[in-house]
């Protein structure tokens, strides 16, 4: 399969606002992304605009404030997918096709039950929550992530374990939480299943509190994948650092300003894994 044959569904509804960067990231790596409104998958649109989820190789849920983030961040988008597209999305994930959720996309995947999805493909009710940052504020800041996956996650195959990456975050609800009484058990399960993909660290690579961890997330977790490794959600925005020149420190490092940004490897990894599988 050639890169341009890889079709990426960049899914949006009203309030999604990072679809352009997500589209561009896949586009620049040679894939064929398309911005698709949920209603196009549901057929609530003119006939020529109708799309089938099954025709795509990758599903990407971009950031934003879908449906105004009312009720809870991502909850309305998730409920709409669940009520009308549940079967399609389940078979998409079960066919081992990649699903990426960034920021609001991660919140949607958690509300949808596609993450962490300890049992089966999609849980009936959310098993985790991405709740208000401990600061109580919207946090818009570069964060340093440490790659923690031992090899399960298909979005980070090209990134060695332990590598640190600078990826910006911009969210008010990014604190990963489990039900208090199950917290320890479920955290151990994430670890055991190799589902923890990224953690927030300080400059020395140590797990540190605010502001290094912008939201107070459980065990500094910034991104997780499902047990199969084909669904990944993360709060920071890799699509904003595909190029070095969008890094906040791009004039202060020796790296080529026109070179790859730290987020690029995520998109390269997933494209490569789709190619290899085809």
């Amino acid at each position: 399969m050639r890169s341009e044959e890889i079709k990426v569904c960049v899914l949006r509804i009203e309030g999604t606002n990072c679809e352009d960067e997500m589209y561009q990231a896949f586009r620049e790596l040679g894939a064929s992304p398309e911005k698709v409104h949920l209603k196009q998958l549901l057929g609530k649109c003119p006939a020529d605009m109708k799309r089938e989820l099954d025709d795509y190789n990758i599903l990407a849920l971009p950031g934003g404030f879908s449906a105004g983030d009312y009720v809870r961040a991502g909850a309305i988008f998730a409920a709409r997918i669940k009520s009308e597209l549940s079967k399609d999305i389940r078979s998409f994930v079960e066919s081992e096709r990649p699903v990426l959720g960034v920021c609001n996309g991660f919140q949607i995947l958690v509300e949808l039950g596609l993450l962490p999805a300890f049992e089966g493909t999609m849980s009936e009710h959310p098993e985790a929550a991405l709740y208000t940052n401990i600061s109580g504020r919207f946090e818009c800041t570069p964060t340093i992530l440490k790659h923690e996956s031992r090899g399960k996650c298909i979005f980070t195959k090209r990134i060695e374990k332990g590598r640190m990456m600078l990826v910006p975050c911009a969210h008010a609800e990014g604190k990963l939480m489990f039900a208090k009484e199950k917290e320890e058990k479920l955290l151990a399960k994430l670890e055991e299943n190799d589902q923890i993909v990224f953690r927030y660290v300080d400059e020395d690579g140590e797990y540190a509190g605010y502001p290094w961890c912008p939201n107070g997330s459980l065990s500094n977790i910034a991104g997780i994948c499902n047990p199969a490794g084909n669904v990944m959600g993360m709060m920071p925005h890799p699509e904003r650092v595909v190029h070095r020149y969008t890094h906040p420190d791009f004039t202060r490092t020796a790296a080529d300003v026109n070179g790859a940004g730290d987020g690029k490897a995520i998109f390269e990894s997933v494209i490569e894994s789709v190619k290899r599988k085809a």
């Binding site: 009720v71 309305i76 009520s83 009710h125 489990f178």
Partner: peptide
């Protein structure tokens, strides 16, 4: 509540 308004985790 179960379908949208509450997240039972929190």
């Amino acid at each position: 509540c179960r379908k949208l308004l509450a997240n039972p985790v929190i």
